[in-house]
Simulated scan of single mutants.
Amino acid sequence: MTRADERRSDVPKAVVKVRKPRKKRPPKTPDGRMAVLDHLRELRRRIIWAMVFIAVGAVVGWVLYLHTLDFLKQPYCDVPAKYRVVSAAKGAPPCPLIYHGVLDGFTARLKVSVISGMIFTAPFWLYQIWAFITPGLKKNERRYTISFIAASTVLFAAGMSLAYIVLSKGLQVLLEQSGYGTQAQLTINDYLSFVTLMLVVFGAAFELPLLVVMANMAGVLSAKVLKKSQRIAIFLIFLFAAVATPSTDPFTMCAMAIPMVILFEAAVLFAVIHDRRKARRKAVERADPHLEDDAPSVVDPIPQRLPIAPSDSWSDTT
């Protein structure tokens, strides 16, 4: 090897970086089907994104904790002062919530922050659930699903709003049961658990008419069955309200049961209208039958012999 070759070999060669191709999402068939492992990877990806959104919302909820706590404490502050302890210290809040453990204040703030984050970012993590489910649905099923999601969101919000309105009266009914000369000094963890449970129970209870409508549209519950079982259903609604309400007082029970009965009657009315339209549509289809594009035609397996014309008529025509 010559000196020129040695000099050439001493020169450092440029390092060429080979860019790795990005991993593409698993291909889907036209009907949205994927392999089981691909489904699990997609589910993992959607869950991670949902947790990221909730975590970001929890940070916002941590910052807005004091405003959220004041909002949640308002029903307790609306209770007359003779039923709760009022702080006499200068500058103290009018309706304080106490805690005993060292970590109780931190856990209460963390709990409120996570719940607030779930509420703030609900459209984003609900979209992740929707994006995971929607590829396997048909076009008409996607349209109905969007309507049901919107209706369920409105009903859940309405139930939580009603719970917040009646919460003050329910607390007063409960606290005055201890009798004259007693006052309540609630801990922050117990109070927040009670308020959260009330809001969630009322919101979930208002989803009942939506479940009835879904069952009717799926053909599981007909309007005839619903009309026959109306009295039993109303009794079960009041029984559910008596058991499900955390306060267990008659005022809160009626505040939950009466709107549920009204919504149930609206669902029964919807079922009646839906079944009438369905029966009318079937009657039209029976009167004017037509084959769908993918419906097989009925073919006689044994072909019949064609009629043979008489010989005289054949000769005449020819």
Rank of each mutant, 00 (worst) to 15 (best):
S247Q: 10
Q172G: 06
F264H: 01
A92S: 11
A163V: 00
I149P: 02
A233S: 13
L197V: 03
I146M: 13
L263I: 02
I119A: 11
E176R: 05
F132Q: 06
R109T: 05
L69M: 14
L197K: 06
G32R: 11
I119S: 07
K28D: 06
V52N: 03
A184C: 02
V15Y: 08
R19D: 14
V154C: 12
I188L: 12
V11A: 15
W49T: 07
A58W: 00
T182G: 00
A241I: 01
W62G: 12
A241V: 06
W130F: 13
V173T: 07
L186N: 12
P75V: 05
K24A: 10
F71A: 10
A204L: 12
P12R: 13
K227H: 10
I258T: 02
R22Q: 06
Y83C: 03
V18D: 15
R277E: 15
L110A: 12
A266C: 08
A266H: 04
K138M: 04
V299D: 15
D78M: 03
I146T: 13
A295Y: 10
H39W: 02
K169G: 05
P250Y: 03
A108P: 05
I234H: 00
Q185M: 14
M1D: 11
K28Q: 13
I234L: 06
I115Q: 09
T68C: 05
L126I: 11
A271M: 07
L103T: 15
I273V: 14
N216T: 07
D275K: 00
L211V: 08
P301S: 12
V36D: 05
I98Y: 08
R281I: 01
S222Q: 00
K24G: 06
A50R: 09
K228H: 09
K82Y: 04
A14Y: 11
D293H: 10
D293N: 11
A244T: 02
P123H: 08
Y191P: 04
A244N: 09
S247E: 10
L97I: 07
D293F: 12
A184D: 05
V200S: 10
A81T: 03
D288K: 13
S168K: 03
D190Y: 09
P30R: 07
V173M: 10
I98G: 01
L171V: 04
T29A: 11
L64S: 06
A205S: 15
V201Q: 03
I47M: 14
V60M: 13
A163T: 00
A58R: 02
I165F: 08
A14W: 11
W62L: 12
T107I: 09
I237Y: 00
P135A: 04
I273K: 04
K82N: 14
I234N: 01
S87D: 15
Q230C: 08
R231S: 11
Q304L: 13
V102C: 04
K28M: 10
V59F: 04
A255Q: 01
G61E: 04
V16P: 02
A223W: 10
V225T: 15
P30Y: 05
T182K: 13
G159K: 01
R276C: 07
P21Q: 15
A14G: 02
P80Y: 06
C95D: 04
V112Y: 10
W314F: 08
V272W: 07
W125Q: 01
P259V: 00
S152C: 10
V16A: 03
M51L: 15
V220L: 09
S222Y: 00
G219D: 09
T245N: 09
